[in-house]
Design a protein around this nucleic acid. Structure first.
Length: 209
DNA sequence: ATTTTCAAT
């Protein structure tokens, strides 16, 4: 239930820096953090509705934990007719989702068209193999309408201001932040480019075959 | 050149 996480507690500075560091060899990050902002859409306007952060639990990746809390975070998401509300969620995750989470998220989002999701990630989780399931998972999310982006300086800066107990201290970027972000963004772009077989599938679909 | 990864002890 909602009370299981304390949304009033901000992330300690060191924890944020350690877990969101986008270094190439992120040794020992055996946890994943997810900072989120929930916005309710009313007509053309969006209103910030809630924010906070979550950490994975043993046996439950943080994305699926978030889905568990979704009903409490977005009242009216599953209403009928007039009572059905539209939400936009932006989350910032220290790792990109695994194949299983991507698949479950994509499936969930297809069933919930009144929910928009934007995902920022600090690092790419198991995305080295060309034919890896994690890569395909990210493409599935894209096809389900999710915008996935690698976090850049402005995103880390925003998270620092929003989710971290920064006590008005300014965000100090670590060495290589920008370089790593650019490298990972290029890698993600290559991953998200539809592969040849998908192009063919789309072409067949257009032709009605 | 190679290193890690929502742990497993």
């Amino acid at each position: 239930s909602f009370s299981k996480y304390d949304k009033t507690v901000l992330l300690p500075r060191k924890r944020f820096i350690y877990h969101y560091n986008n270094m190439r060899w992120a040794r020992g990050r055996h946890e994943t953090y997810l900072c989120f902002v929930v916005k309710r859409r009313i007509g053309p306007d969006t209103l910030s509705f809630d924010f906070g952060h979550l950490r994975n639990r043993t046996g439950c990746h943080v994305e699926l934990l978030f889905l568990r809390y979704l009903g409490a975070l977005c009242p009216g998401l599953w209403g009928y007719g007039e009572t059905k509300l539209t939400y936009s969620i932006t989350w910032f995750c220290s790792w990109s989702p695994c194949a299983d989470c991507s698949s479950k998220l994509a499936q969930f989002l297809r069933q919930t068209p009144n929910l928009r999701l934007r995902i920022f990630v600090s690092r790419l989780y198991f995305c080295d193999r060309e034919d890896g399931l994690e890569r395909e998972g990210l493409r599935m999310l894209k096809r389900a309408g999710v915008h996935i982006t690698v976090m850049s300086y402005k995103d880390f800066f925003y998270c620092w201001q929003t989710f971290v107990a920064c006590n008005q201290s300014r965000f100090k970027p670590w060495a290589e932040l920008h370089r790593n972000s650019v490298r990972l963004a290029r890698k993600l772009n290559r991953i998200l480019q539809p592969c040849e077989t998908e192009d063919l599938r789309d072409a067949f679909k257009l032709l009605g075959l």
